[in-house]
Write a protein that binds this DNA or RNA. Structure first.
Length: 710
DNA sequence: ACGGCTTGCACT
DNA sequence: TAGTGCAAG
């Protein structure tokens, strides 16, 4: 049956804040003479004046639109000022805008829970702040309401014109017998108006905002009165707002789904959508989307504001339209190198500034020449520009082989290999924070990374690893897989998901001739690896630091699995793969702090699915971990071999799991650590709690199911 | 033969 | 999971 929870319990106060033509404002701040002038930001001026990506409101009045070319804009608005996006490494560089966005976020996140939704938008959950305000200093007790708040647009408010508007807004704010939800909204609007003023004072940027009872409505509202204004959506005006609204104006319905609603169901406004039962919508669009649509039409959205001030991934890409498409391996490599350089730089600053590490590197390509899509590829990330470049290029070859392999192709001497890359992008995802207790460790990392990249050397800074939080079986455990370049005799590990592509050099030879691409020899690659290995004489070498946000599960103990046997280094194989690290005589020494109890699976799932449950004060202990790879030593006594109950019998034979108790750590072991880390580890060995960063269940249904059951 | 470049999320 | 596709701005 229809969902009822959101309607009744949705007295949250949510704001959406949206910077006005943000890139333009950033440029205007840099160059104040542009203020007040019709201005647009363009990238790549050479072809038809470049493409517009942001347009000032003055320019919009002339009919200038985003997606116009610079020359078109000049036609409709001759006096328009066109500012170019900075270019670095042959591509647009958006870092100034990203940084400006961060400035804004740091201000807007002062009140309530803040979610950075894009480079220039945030959502705020102001429920608590609004409730506090209402309890302590409700608007009707205020002597005055600030100007900015008085300029609010309150939907459904009877407003004549001119000065009257402000007067009725004031009355709305001061109304003491208003609906409780409206009072909270009023508080929210006051808070938002103050935040917006702070943004203006501290950054010189204006923004617009919407204040409503959920994200969807807040977002809708923030776009209604721009620039530099805010709009409030009282509960009772929701229906009037939505009914006449063109379906495509709703977030998520601006694309194919919206078109389908129009074409297939004849739905043109949100009001039209009301005539369809939830079941009917589910029949057309599936259970999740169907329910979502049914709710959306009624202004219901359980979507929560996530607490997140930083992006979840970093990417760098470029298009090579039509004639400029990349047709040689060498040109792809060249551009990949540029993209990887940018990405690496951004990863490094994320590490420095936010103590975060990405885990996955992905490559996406577009090929114009064929209907068939070029496959995306990913692998574990290794820090250091050269490493990233190398891995990216390997990913490209892995994709390429798959791509051309599946189609008949006559290559011989033909520069046209049957592909032409029109889009190239590389991205880093699965970014996790290094636990706060490991600051000095991250610093240690940090220095190494810098050293490495500045010397343009390929040093294995981060030995590859894979943190695999397993939720299956009885009780959970953490599994760490150390990774290294695949050498001969490695057994396939079915449990591991990351593999580097195979680089078949025989196959590449044609290309190398044609395109002067010289593949790095396997020996070379190995030597860079063994350089590090050689240094590993008894002392700490490769240090892996890992925080697993998903690991905020209760664990009696954490077990580390590592796989088997040392591999040969001097192989002459022409193939290289990435596979699980298997070292004979290698000890993974592991230190961790652990929770002290375990949960039955249902509770376990509950925590995973419910952000609030685990962020509350009774949240369970976070598992922090830290281990190093040291050769030629036996496990310290405090590493007790165990058999993991979740492994199959065969795996049990191959794997050894070590669990560790923090109070049994061997001082000698500790003393082997770099001096600056020792103290840190000692404090860190004491169990401590950490905020949960676990995402809420993402299915739309998840938002509503809890109430259905209750 | 062009709207470029980034993000995030749902689905499978 | 990794890979694909959609959507937004």
């Amino acid at each position: 049956m229809p969902v009822s929870r959101a309607q009744s319990s949705d007295s949250r106060i949510i704001a959406h804040v949206d910077m006005d033509c943000f890139y333009v404002q950033v440029e205007q701040r840099k160059q104040p003479t542009l203020r007040g002038q019709p201005t647009a930001v363009v990238q790549y001026n050479s072809w038809k004046g470049g493409g517009l990506i942001a347009v000032s409101y003055e320019a919009r009045m002339f009919g200038v639109k985003r997606s116009m070319r610079g020359s078109e804009a000049k036609e409709v608005c001759p006096e328009i000022q066109l500012v170019q996006v900075p270019v670095a490494r042959g591509k647009a560089d958006l870092s100034v805008y990203r940084n400006a966005g961060s400035e804004v976020v740091s201000i807007l996140s002062r009140k309530g829970r803040c979610e950075r939704a894009s480079i220039d938008e945030v959502y705020l959950d102001l429920t608590e702040s609004a409730e506090t305000m209402l309890a302590e200093l409700p608007p009707h007790r205020l002597e005055s309401i600030n100007e900015e708040a008085l300029k609010s647009h309150v939907l459904g408010l009877d407003v004549q014109d001119g000065d009257n508007a402000r007067e009725s807004v004031r009355k709305w704010f001061l109304k003491s017998d208003a609906d409780h939800r409206d009072k909270l909204l009023a508080c929210g609007a006051l808070i938002v108006s103050e935040l917006r003023l702070q943004v203006l004072e501290e950054t010189e940027f204006t923004c617009s905002a919407g204040i409503a009872h959920n994200k969807m409505l807040a977002k809708l509202a923030s776009g209604m009165n721009k620039p530099a204004q805010q709009t409030v959506v009282p509960f009772l005006s929701v229906n009037k707002l939505l009914e006449p609204l063109p379906i495509k104006k709703m977030k998520q319905l601006g694309g194919k789904l919206g078109t389908s609603l129009q074409v297939d169901l004849g739905v043109n406004t949100v009001g039209d959508l009301l005539h369809f039962s939830e079941q009917k919508l589910q029949e057309h669009y599936g259970i999740n989307t169907g329910t979502w649509l049914w709710n959306a039409a009624r202004g219901i959205s359980g979507d929560e504001v996530e607490s997140r001030l930083l992006p979840k991934s970093h990417g760098s890409g470029k298009t090579f339209p039509g004639p400029r498409a990349l047709k040689t391996s060498a040109s792809v490599q060249k551009w990949l190198n540029e993209l990887c350089e940018e990405l690496s730089e951004r990863l490094l600053s994320d590490l420095e500034q936010n103590k975060r590490i990405a885990h996955t590197l992905s490559l996406h390509l577009n090929d114009s020449e064929s209907v068939k899509k070029f496959p995306s590829k990913s692998c574990p990330i290794r820090y250091g520009t050269a490493k990233i470049q190398e891995d990216a290029f390997n990913l490209f070859h892995a994709g390429l082989r798959e791509y051309v392999g599946s189609r008949t192709i006559k290559t011989k001497g033909n520069l046209h290999h049957g592909w032409a890359i029109t889009g190239l992008s590389i991205s880093a995802s699965k970014i996790v924070e290094i636990p706060s207790g490991t600051r000095s460790i991250s610093k240690y990392f940090d220095n190494q990374v810098k050293t490495c990249t500045s010397e343009k050397q390929s040093i294995d800074l981060f030995t590859q690893y894979d943190a695999d939080v397993s939720y299956s079986g009885n009780g959970s455990y953490l599994r760490f897989h150390s990774m290294c370049p695949q050498m001969k005799n490695c057994e396939e590990d079915t449990g591991n998901k990351h593999f580097m592509p195979i680089v078949n050099q025989d196959k590449d030879q044609n290309e190398s001739k044609d395109e002067s691409f010289i593949p790095k020899s396997i020996d070379e690659q190995h030597s860079s690896f063994s350089t590090v290995r050689q240094q590993q004489d008894g002392v700490t070498r490769d240090i892996l630091s890992l925080s697993s946000s998903g690991a905020e599960l209760n664990q009696k103990e954490t077990k580390i699995d590592f796989l088997g046997e040392e591999t040969e280094h001097g192989l002459k194989s022409k193939e290289q793969k990435w596979k699980p690290y298997k070292e004979k005589g290698t000890i993974l020494r592991y230190f961790g702090s652990h929770g002290s109890c375990s949960l039955p699976k249902e509770d376990h799932d509950k925590i995973l699915g419910d952000n609030k449950a685990s962020s509350s004060s009774d949240s369970k202990v976070m598992v922090d971990s830290f281990f190093e790879v040291v050769e030629g030593k036996l496990p310290p006594k405090n590493l007790v071999p165990r058999t993991s109950t979740t492994l199959s019998g065969q795996d049990e034979l191959r794997r050894t799991a070590w669990s560790y108790k923090s109070d049994e750590i061997d001082q000698i072991t500790l003393n082997e650590l770099p001096i600056e880390i020792q103290a840190e580890v000692r404090t860190w060995l004491r169990p401590h709690k950490r905020a949960n960063t676990m995402k809420k269940g993402s299915s739309i249904l998840d938002y509503f199911l809890p109430t259905r059951n209750s």
